[in-house]
Write a protein that binds this DNA or RNA. Structure first.
Length: 467
RNA sequence: GCUCCCUUCGUCUAGUGGCCUAGGACGCCGCCCUCUCACGGCGUAAACAGGGGUUCGAGUCCCCUAGGGAGCGCCA
């Protein structure tokens, strides 16, 4: 049974890079009929917060990346870690180190001066009796001094590390709390992880973890180190590149399906296919086909995908998302107009739901805000008569539907020998306040008869008298 | 500095020795459609980092160089 996990540390928001890793992990588990586990790595008590935990949980839920087990919290597993540390100590596979931080720094500097990788020199490795010192010791793992560790990475291929490059890492602090490289190992082992899919910044940690695993007599999982995501400038993706937290994307009006589709195509592809449903991904995704090189995040392409999903999403479903956006923007939608109807006509003219909400404000409320420039340009004296006429005809229209409205607009245009645009655009400004909207007939139809008539009348009062 | 990773259009990518005068997508630019904005359709420009090998033949295999990145914590 395949078991994968996502193991973020709750020290901030849920980053899109983390989401991509989680997605890969989740897809692999789903595809293999395995299980996906969520683990919160909160051993850094200084920086871990409940808000961050919530952000992770909320983000994963929003994206629909459901875990089968967990969330497990490392802070609740300290007894287990202690027990393993005691065992390693007893077996002579770990030892107390009384070196001062100052000494450690000196040692590192010395290695550096000798053009070698800075590391611990194993000073306390063979101590048989504790030295007389006030220093509370840390506990270090006895890393093998010779031989090599071969990592058969599903993405990076075979990577070989020499043990003499590795030092004896600290597995417990003076206060007894375990450190990262140790807790992951114990957890992955205890939780039966068969595949460890994580960011490639952990590739260098892998040989140490494998050594601990072997000292514990545990089996070594398969590894897949996924490259990180770059910003548009080729640097590691960070806040200064814009939104990096998944919740930012929710707020900004992106659909989960779009984000997921975008993220999966960053480093993975299936021929020339661009659009993938979740079901297709579960079927087609191949962890071994993930690129070993990093990829840059491209906002424009995400926007394109988002619009694609907006255009293809069920109106009733989209309406919920639009409602969320309207609430955020404090747009009152309680005037009875169906959001699903609005969504149908606005889908092809919005890349995000936030944009859609903003561009749909004229559908709500009674009053409309007239754009000064649009009024000046389109509501000129010459249009007064045709627009008045149009208004009357709309007011008298017995059957209020887009076809009938369409016919009336054309009729008035012909009557005054105006090109359609010459009457449609002033009408648009009159009923929406601006120059941009869906086709004028459906726009007028959706706004409704009485409101349209009221708005046109008001627009008529804005026309200057200088003719 | 050391160890490890990476390198096809601006970006995401196809490509697994001949099908490549390198394909698709986003974006850009142009044209068409058109009542606005869009959608859509069509089209243009745009890349194998450099150098050596191997081979009849290399984007594809090997080596070197250059460039980029990660790690080298009592952070995760």
């Amino acid at each position: 049974m395949v078991r994968t996990r996502f193991a973020p540390s709750p020290t901030g928001y849920l980053h899109v890079g983390g989401v991509r890793t989680a997605l890969f992990s989740w897809l692999y588990a789903r595809q293999q009929g395995g299980q996906f586990i969520l683990r919160i790595e909160d051993t850094d008590r200084e920086r871990s917060t409940q808000e961050s935990v919530n952000a992770i949980l909320d983000g994963m839920a929003w994206l629909g990346l459901q875990h089968d087990e967990g969330p497990f919290y490392q802070t609740k597993r300290f007894e287990r870690y202690h027990a393993i540390i005691e065992q390693l100590l007893a077996e002579g596979k770990a030892y107390y180190c009384y070196c001062s931080k100052e000494r450690l720094e000196t040692v590192r500097a010395e290695y550096k001066a000798r053009k070698q990788k800075p590391r611990y020199d194993g000073h306390c490795r063979h101590l048989t009796t504790p030295p007389s010192t006030d220093i509370k010791p840390v506990i270090r793992f006895k890393n093998p001094k010779v031989g090599e560790v071969v990592v058969k990475d599903l993405i990076k291929g075979t990577v070989i590390f020499n043990n003499n490059e590795l030092d004896d890492l600290i597995i417990a602090r003076p206060d007894g709390t375990p450190t990262y490289n140790f807790t992951v190992v114990v957890d992955d082992w205890d939780m039966g992880m068969t595949h460890v899919i994580r960011g490639d910044d952990h590739l260098n940690n892998t040989p140490r973890q494998i050594n601990i695993l072997e000292a514990l007599g545990a089996s070594v999982p398969q590894y897949a180190h996924v490259p990180m995501i770059l910003g548009s400038d080729g640097q590691r993706l960070s806040k200064r590149h814009g939104a990096v937290s998944v919740m930012n994307y929710k707020q900004a009006g992106y659909l989960p399906a779009a984000l997921l589709n975008y993220l999966v195509r960053l480093g993975w592809s299936h021929g020339d296919q661009e659009i993938f449903s979740i079901a297709e991904l579960i079927d087609l995704f191949d962890i071994q086909a993930v690129h070993s090189s990093p990829a840059a995040f491209n906002q424009d392409k995400l926007l394109w995908l988002n619009q694609h999903y907006i255009k293809t999403c069920q109106p009733s479903e989209l309406a919920k998302h639009l409602q969320f956006q309207c609430n955020q923007l404090k747009i009152d939608t309680s005037n009875g107009l169906s959001l699903a109807e609005i969504v149908k006509v606005q889908a092809e003219r919005a890349k995000t739901l936030t944009e859609m909400a903003k561009n749909s404000q004229f559908f709500f409320g009674n009053e409309v805000e007239f754009n000064e420039k649009a009024v000046r340009k389109n509501l000129k004296p010459a249009i007064r008569k045709p627009l008045t006429d149009l208004c009357d005809r709309l007011a008298q229209l017995a059957e209020w539907n887009a076809e009938a409205i369409h016919a009336i607009v054309h009729l008035v245009a012909e009557q005054y020998e105006l090109k359609l645009g010459k009457i449609a655009q002033p009408l648009r400004v009159a009923v929406t306040g601006g120059t941009v909207s869906p086709p004028i007939d459906v726009t007028v139809y959706l706004i409704g008869q009485s409101r349209c008539v009221d708005r046109i009348k008001r627009a008529l009062t804005l026309i200057g008298t200088d003719d």
